[in-house]
Design a binder for these strands. Sequence first.
DNA 1: TATTGTTATACTCTATAACTATA
DNA 2: TATAGTTATAGAGTATAACAATA
Lengths: 141, 141
Amino acid sequence: MDFPAALCALHREVAVLYGATARRFDLTVQQAELLRQLDLESLSFGELARRLGCDKSNMTGMVDRLVRRGLLVRQTDPDDRRIVKPVLTDEGDQLVVRIRAEFAAVVGQRCADLPATEKKQMAELAAVVSAALSRQDNEQL
Amino acid sequence: MDFPAALCALHREVAVLYGATARRFDLTVQQAELLRQLDLESLSFGELARRLGCDKSNMTGMVDRLVRRGLLVRQTDPDDRRIVKPVLTDEGDQLVVRIRAEFAAVVGQRCADLPATEKKQMAELAAVVSAALSRQDNEQL
DNA sequence: TATTGTTATACTCTATAACTATA
DNA sequence: TATAGTTATAGAGTATAACAATA
């Protein structure tokens, strides 16, 4: 299997596992991903849409549903009042932690037979490749 | 970044890139994924749903849309007439090839600065981890 | 009886285009 | 005039439950 095909295959398996994990917490996979991104760093609606690879018009509804569940609040930027940032509530933050732990547990269980050195190597390579793929010059997208 | 977090991050970047690629061919990412799975091997509706990580009830509509576009045909198993397999048409097969090439081109471009040895290593590790994650004893999912 | 695919339903995600508020 | 977020709309993906056909 060549490099792009291997990325595709891995992506598929992680998507299935991550989706199943999200569902256990009554979240869609997109909701879990949105919360995870906000946990990584503070993002506006537009930046969030770019990270999730979807149109900004979708964010309104997605954030609304998570606000209704008490996992997010809207925060308007005082310096530029056009900009709004969804921010994790304590409950939202705790949920992200629980999802991450659950996902890590499933991955750990399934990869139990993998040598630690290979996992370490994989983690390092995945970080490098992620960085390469995420280049923001996405004009051709 | 630990192993599960690195998998998550990589998964996200691939999802965005793969989704953008699918969109260029007027496909949703799930449609592209469905076609890709069928190109890898012959699958029934139920098996396909398991691969995609969703309920079998969704497959009817998804396959219907792709049949309407001439990319798939339904084929009933003569040995067990409950089983139906969606099969790629020539057009569907050609589309899968084009999507795969397009995705490989984007990945290749973005990872151009990555040493070939690292790409090779990544491809091998991704295959190993994919296999580990895809274990079919999914009773806890 | 059990399994496979289908249908009905309700909700969520998605892109497009037009809109409001702010800069 | 440009940008950030919202709204309206239509189409697609999703899970649940009940169903028909086949085994």
